[in-house]
Structures are given as structure tokens and as C-alpha cells.
């Protein structure tokens, strides 16, 4: 109980620190007293940093939770939530919208979400249609094929995009960023993401069962094929919504579940909430760095990749990358 309280307090302190860190009025931490005397400081914190921080928390929580679900269901610590083609699909959707001259953020988000779901549906269809290997292998192969197809489409759109008008937006989007996130875009992404998070949290004990071998899973009364498909579809839909909001942000869904399982063990009843909290905090810290480190914004995906890859290497060096069945 004491440990949980301490954890909650340190999480809250970290979130407040993220809210106060930035470039205004000078690089570093803003003196909270300034909020009462400087209207610009108030606007910076509550209109600019706060929606962005909330977005980072949602993004990290969603990617952490879905990453944990994917790794548990596949029994493979190297899969991540975008691997069914969802991230690449969303990237292609956004790129197509931008190349078509879309200026509304809703249009870009909508196109990203639509193609992410389309990629998921295509992967599901191919996994069922492939006449090769067991279901895990088929899903992996289907995800690989769909991801590659979407990546090829993205490359073609980027190649033919106008370098002055369209290409910078597309490149920036594919590297992930919460820059420019306002309450409206956050609210739109929150609905499916929170629904997906709620489902994964409520379903976490079942995910532990699904991570077991086929025979064990069936003997425990589960319908493995149906329940695994449901868990993956809901997790992917949640990922699609946050990717549509923030662009492609890699490594959180790969590394955070492993760190969470290192702390809590493999049982999803504990590793799922830990993945949600750790993912949220990790994304918040990374986005604060992306926003505050240099005068120009760093792409969030680059920051998560830089830190995530170091964490991943450390976990591998210590032999901690695994999913216990």
C-alpha cells in the first residue's frame, strides 16, 4: 500500500515536472508563481503544454497496453502494436490526405484512422486465407505483407510529394509528434483510445489465459481464436486512434511492456496496469524532451527510438527480454 502510494506520488511529481519544463520564459523549469503574474506563462502551460501532456499520457498508455497485449497473445517479446500494419496504414492514410492537399486536421486524422483499420482488416483476412503454418505464423506473415505494402505506398507518396508544401508535413507526421495538439484533436482520439484501454484493462486476466498454450487455454474454458482476435482487434483500433493523433511513434509498445513485466512479472493482471502507467510516463518524459531540449521541435518518434533502443539493449544485455508462459 505504501509502495503504491509512493509510486502514485512520484508519478504525479513527474507529470507536474513535465508541465513546468519547457522553453518559456527561458529553457528550464517555469517558476509556478509566474502563472499568477504572467498571462503568457499561464497560456503556455494551460493552452499549449497541458493538452500536449494529456495527449502524451494517452499515447503512451495506449501503446504500452496494446504492446503488452500483443506480446502476451503472441507469446513473443519482439512484437509491437504496429506490426499488423496499423502504423504504416495510418502513415499512408495521413500522407495521402496531405498529398491531396487536405488542410483540415480532422481530414488527416480520419484518413489515417481509416487506412489503419483497413490494414488491420487486410491482415486479418490474409491470416485466415494463408494456407501455411499455425495461426501465429500466419498472423505474423500477414502483418509483414500488409506493413510492407503500406510502407511501399508511403514511399511512393513521399517521392512524388511537393518538397515545399507536402513533403515536410508527411515526413514530420511519419516521425511522430504531438506538436500542435489541441483539445479538439485530443478529444477525438480519446474516445476510441479510452474505450480500447478500458477493454484491455478489463480483459487483462483473460489475456494471461490467452498467453498460455493452446491446450491449456482451451481447458480453462476460453475460445482462443475468437478471444485472441478480439484482443488484437481492439488493441489495434486503439493504436490506430493514437497514431492518427500523433503520427508514428515507435519503441514504446515494444520496450515498455518488457520493463513492466520485469517489475510485475508476466501475469497481465499486474503487467497490464504497469504497462499503462509506465507507457504514459515514458511518453510524457519523451515529449517533454522533444519540446524543451532545443529551440526547434524534435520528432517524438526519434526521441522514443533513441531512449527506447538504449533501454531495449540494456534489457537484452541483462537477459530480461522474455514472455513467461
Amino acid at each position: 500500500m505504501l509502495a503504491a502510494g509512493g509510486l502514485a506520488l512520484s508519478s504525479a511529481a513527474l507529470i507536474v515536472a513535465c508541465l513546468l519544463a519547457g522553453r518559456y520564459p527561458s529553457p528550464g523549469f517555469l517558476d509556478p508563481r509566474r502563472l499568477f503574474s504572467d498571462p503568457t506563462a499561464f497560456a503556455v502551460v494551460f493552452s499549449s503544454r497541458l493538452p500536449r501532456l494529456a495527449g502524451a499520457l494517452l499515447l503512451g498508455a495506449m501503446l504500452g497496453a496494446s504492446g503488452n497485449a500483443f506480446q502476451m497473445v503472441f507469446g513473443n517479446p519482439l512484437v509491437e502494436p504496429g506490426f499488423l500494419g496499423v502504423s504504416q496504414g495510418a502513415a499512408l492514410g495521413a500522407a495521402l490526405a496531405l498529398a491531396a492537399g487536405a488542410t483540415s486536421e480532422l481530414a488527416v486524422m480520419g484518413a489515417a484512422f481509416l487506412l489503419a483499420i483497413l490494414a488491420l482488416a487486410a491482415a486479418a483476412f490474409l491470416a485466415r486465407a494463408f494456407a501455411f503454418g499455425g495461426w501465429i505464423l500466419r498472423v505474423i506473415l500477414a502483418g509483414f505483407a500488409v506493413s510492407s505494402f503500406m510502407a511501399a505506398g508511403l514511399a511512393m507518396v513521399k517521392y512524388s510529394a511537393d518538397p515545399l508544401r507536402e513533403l515536410p508535413d508527411i515526413v514530420y507526421w511519419t516521425m511522430g509528434s504531438l506538436s500542435g495538439l489541441g483539445w479538439r484533436r485530443l478529444a477525438i482520439a480519446s474516445v476510441p483510445a479510452l474505450a480500447s484501454l478500458g477493454f484491455l484493462y478489463a480483459f487483462r486476466w483473460r489475456i494471461t489465459v490467452l498467453s498460455a498454450d493452446e491446450a491449456v487455454t482451451s481447458s480453462l474454458g476460453a475460445k482462443p481464436a475468437l478471444e485472441r482476435a478480439a484482443a488484437l482487434a481492439v488493441a489495434s483500433a486503439g493504436v490506430a486512434s493514437v497514431v492518427a493523433m500523433a503520427g508514428v511513434v515507435s519503441w514504446i509498445g515494444l520496450v515498455i511492456p518488457q520493463a513492466a513485466r520485469l517489475i510485475t512479472g508476466s501475469d497481465a493482471r499486474r503487467s497490464m496496469p504497469a504497462s499503462i502507467v509506465l507507457g504514459a510516463l515514458f511518453a510524457a518524459v519523451c515529449d517533454t524532451l522533444a519540446r524543451a531540449l532545443l529551440p526547434g521541435e524534435l520528432p517524438l518518434g526519434a526521441v522514443t527510438a533513441a531512449i527506447g533502443s538504449i533501454v531495449f539493449a540494456l534489457l537484452l544485455l541483462r537477459g530480461k527480454v522474455r514472455v513467461s508462459r
Binding site: Y24, P25, A43, V44, R49, S179, L294, G296
Partner: peptide
Amino acid sequence: VWFGANPGEGWGRVGFEQIAA
């Protein structure tokens, strides 16, 4: 005022708080 914020060869992004700074 923005020199130094974009060392690259293309457009570089800045947020409102940097503009405020």
C-alpha cells in the same frame, strides 16, 4: 530570432511556447 532553431535543410517545427520565449 529563429536562427539556430533550425540547423537543417528544410522547414523546422517550433511550438507556441518557443514563439512566446
